[in-house]
Design a protein around this nucleic acid. Structure first.
Length: 215
DNA sequence: CACCAGGAATGTA
DNA sequence: TACATTCATGGT
């Protein structure tokens, strides 16, 4: 067992089962609706805290905008004011609209998207404006359920803290995680989620645990 | 008013 | 390829 697998087991002991509320969040991904919300959240949360994203999501729900298809039909101009609280809202409205448009026009749904292979999907997502590696991989791992490890600031901190590497480019770290772990979507999701909890320190928002940001 | 929030795109060597 | 700089906004 390598050192990363050991860290994984330790985190699991700490956050698994007893304190495993975050598992509820993962289970909710079973529904297509929740997976679409992951896509929406992935864009809205860029350079913004999750609380502001929640307000935006609430606005969308109030207007009955619950799916990527709804966003596609709505258009960026009408979308922008609804997501104002998430910051950078004009840019994000465009990013999100074009992402929804891409998914709906080319695949129809996330479920259909999953049938395509990972490198092709990743390449397609990265071509879209406003979608970089972290956002693309978040969508791939949590919404489409492809085995790709997400590297974010929390992951970088984690790597530094445990002296797992001396350089920190995205692909290098991604490869480090993927070659040290079984190629398993669930493990990638679990570990990434626990790293976020661990590095974030604060743990769960007691008022609203199910909405805790993980991706 | 300063600073924060889990990025992305572009420039540069 | 890898690191530095620029851009983009509401909330507190």
């Amino acid at each position: 067992m390598n050192s990363l697998e050991k860290l994984y087991k330790e985190l699991k002991k700490k956050y698994g089962l007893a304190k495993g509320q975050w598992r509820l969040w993962c289970k909710r991904l079973k529904t297509g609706k929740e997976r679409e919300e992951v896509v929406i959240g992935a864009i809205l949360t860029q350079r913004t805290n999750w609380r502001n994203v929640e307000m935006a999501l609430k606005n969308l729900k109030r207007e009955k905008i619950n799916s990527l298809r709804d966003i596609y039909k709505l258009g960026p101009e009408k979308l922008a004011p609804l997501i104002k609280s998430s910051g950078f809202y004009r840019a994000k409205a465009n990013y999100l609209f074009h992402l929804a448009k891409f998914i709906i026009e080319n695949y129809g749904s996330l479920r259909e998207m999953k049938k395509e292979d990972l490198p092709k999907l990743r390449g397609e997502l990265l071509k879209l404006k406003g979608i970089g590696k972290e956002t693309a991989d978040s969508i791939l791992l949590y919404a489409i359920e492809k085995p790709v490890f997400v590297i974010d600031e929390y992951t970088r901190r984690f790597v530094k803290k445990h002296k797992m590497a001396k350089k920190f480019p995205y692909e290098y770290l991604q490869n480090l995680f993927q070659k040290s772990l079984p190629r398993d979507i669930k493990i990638y999701q679990d570990l990434h989620a626990m790293i976020v909890l661990e590095e974030k320190g604060a743990g769960w928002d007691s008022k609203n645990p199910s909405e805790q940001k993980i991706i």
